[in-house]
Design a protein around this nucleic acid. Sequence first.
DNA 1: TTGTTTCCCATATAGCCCCATGGTATCCCG
DNA 2: CGGGATACCATGGGGCTATATGGGAAACAA
Lengths: 153, 153
Amino acid sequence: MFLSSFESSVDAKKRVSIPAAFRKAIGRADSVFLWPSLDKPCIEGAGQRLMEEFDASMSELDLMDPRRIALANYIMGEARQAKLDEGGRVVLDAELLAVAGVSEKAKFVGLGDRFQIWEPAAYEGEKAKMRALARENLGLLKAKPRRPEDAAE
Amino acid sequence: MFLSSFESSVDAKKRVSIPAAFRKAIGRADSVFLWPSLDKPCIEGAGQRLMEEFDASMSELDLMDPRRIALANYIMGEARQAKLDEGGRVVLDAELLAVAGVSEKAKFVGLGDRFQIWEPAAYEGEKAKMRALARENLGLLKAKPRRPEDAAE
DNA sequence: TTGTTTCCCATATAGCCCCATGGTATCCCG
DNA sequence: CGGGATACCATGGGGCTATATGGGAAACAA
């Protein structure tokens, strides 16, 4: 699970360290999937599992459904698989750097099943908006009935 | 269940002992989840179960639902998993210490399914406010009309 | 070649893990 | 009922290892 947030620096070779905690969330795979966010000025990333979920979701649409093609175009077409070097870093290509406006520092934000990479200042502004939307929707977080064996503690 | 309150000290390495009673509430897991409170100057914490409930609730929303992203941003982006050492302590990072204004002492307050960590003086102030608010609203505690069959006895 | 990308090695720092100690409450046995 | 022994708890400190980041050599493209 991608949890918490971290800031790391981008070196002259456009490399960034994926935070160690996120590397563990990826598993022992030595690569991450990265793509430009559809609606925010940031990069999104995830491990193989989420990509497979996208794939499975799309598979439920008809093979020639234009909506399927459009989704595939965006998700599969824009995503790239970045290999981690020995130190756990990836190279961000020019397009990714551009969409997020990242230059010297990169803010990694965990979202559970995926993460985002922001230009730190841009993230601060976005955070306020996100919080407002989250607050409006806190009601979506439902408590689950406890199982009896849990109550035993 | 996180019950009652305790005070423990923060050492030079920013470590605090999680009260033994709270550790039992966490179960045999060796880590706690901590995050800055949404609306109070304090830290909130819980065991894995609460986090899993959040995760499960969010998983019921569509993969790209903006509400899902916003909730994840707030909950997963701000929370961190802190490992307990042998003595049952966790390290509080600079951001958490800052939001709660904690330096030398930390007040742990149990809230049932989660707990809070306060700077002791700040908590005293907050407690006074809470009490005042409660006193003004005692009228909200209405007696329920007795059912006729109860009166019959 | 020259510039660009990919891989590998190097290093300082900071965070983590383990060991140690003193104090306190509890239990048990006399 | 008293005293000691014991288990648990809070707290202190040191050493080691993982992590982040810099730099260079080798492969590749133009």
